[in-house]
Amino acid sequence: MSIRLRPVHTDAAGQEHEWAGDGAAVPDVPAQGTETPARAPDPGAHLPGVQAAWRRAHGWGNGLWRRLSPWLVPALAVVVWQALGSAGVIPTRVLPTPIAVVQAFLSLAHTGELWQDIAVSARRAAIGFAVGAGTGLLLGLVNGVFSVADRLLDSSVQMIRTIPHLALIPLVILWFGIGETAKEFLVALGAMFPVYLNTYHGVRGVDAGLVEMARMYGLTGWAFYRHVLFPGALPSILVGVRYALGITWTTLIVAETISADAGIGYMVMNAREFVQMDVVVLGIVLYALLGKLSDVVARLLERWLLPWRVTWGGDAQ
């Protein structure tokens, strides 16, 4: 049948050697370099050969550069903006300079108004998101797991989903007035569907082989949800959470601009009345920062909850 130069199956010592050579080797002591891509601390290590070497040699892919590079473009934009404003190319009544915006920030921060407005907006976002995402998660899990619930509820949820939730603003004002509930309701409605869809998708996408294995080993009931279904669906659920966070801020901006007596939106609309251009821009920047902040939180959550996931770092050949 086959000619062998070395015995494959000899003694314990020889065997261990054989095992280590099976397919992609995982050495006991992780060497620096490309042998253990999953563990290597160097983010450039997954790149093949020459490109990786070049990157390492030139400092691309090392910590500082990687951390700073996403801020390069925004920082450059601010510098150009300031320069154009100072040179008078952009009139300040069209767009105040970054320095003017920072000054507005400092004076509002000093009086404490700013913090109060941010707190009010953040509270609305948090409550609305918690209620919406929670409902979406629950519905997604229930419809994903139980086909009876799926048949009863899914098409209704899908129908409601197709209505742009911001179109409900007039109705919401009639129902709840212009108080907190109206804004929280709108945010909840907006945040619910991405979480619902992705949770449902995640539950249905759990590896069928894994489900069968669980059944075979007697993983049932709560243990099955905790050990197989939920972890399996989690990557998809977190994608939904990220989408929902984005929608949360968008919804809040619209809701606060239309009617509010506190919050960032109120601050901006008030400033518009008095043509305080710097405060208007400050409000917009605040929304951007808060949106970015929640995205960062979502990403940290992903990294913390899904360390086991195989991800592709980018850089296709």
Binding site: W19, G23, A24, V26, T36
Partner: peptide, 22 residues
């Protein structure tokens, strides 16, 4: 017994197909 005690703390994705089957 299957020669994999050295990778006990790794995640499955860090293993080759043959190792996973083992």
């Amino acid at each position: 017994m299957v020669g994999l005690d050295s990778v006990a703390n790794k995640l499955p994705r860090q293993l080759s197909g043959g190792m996973k089957m083992r």
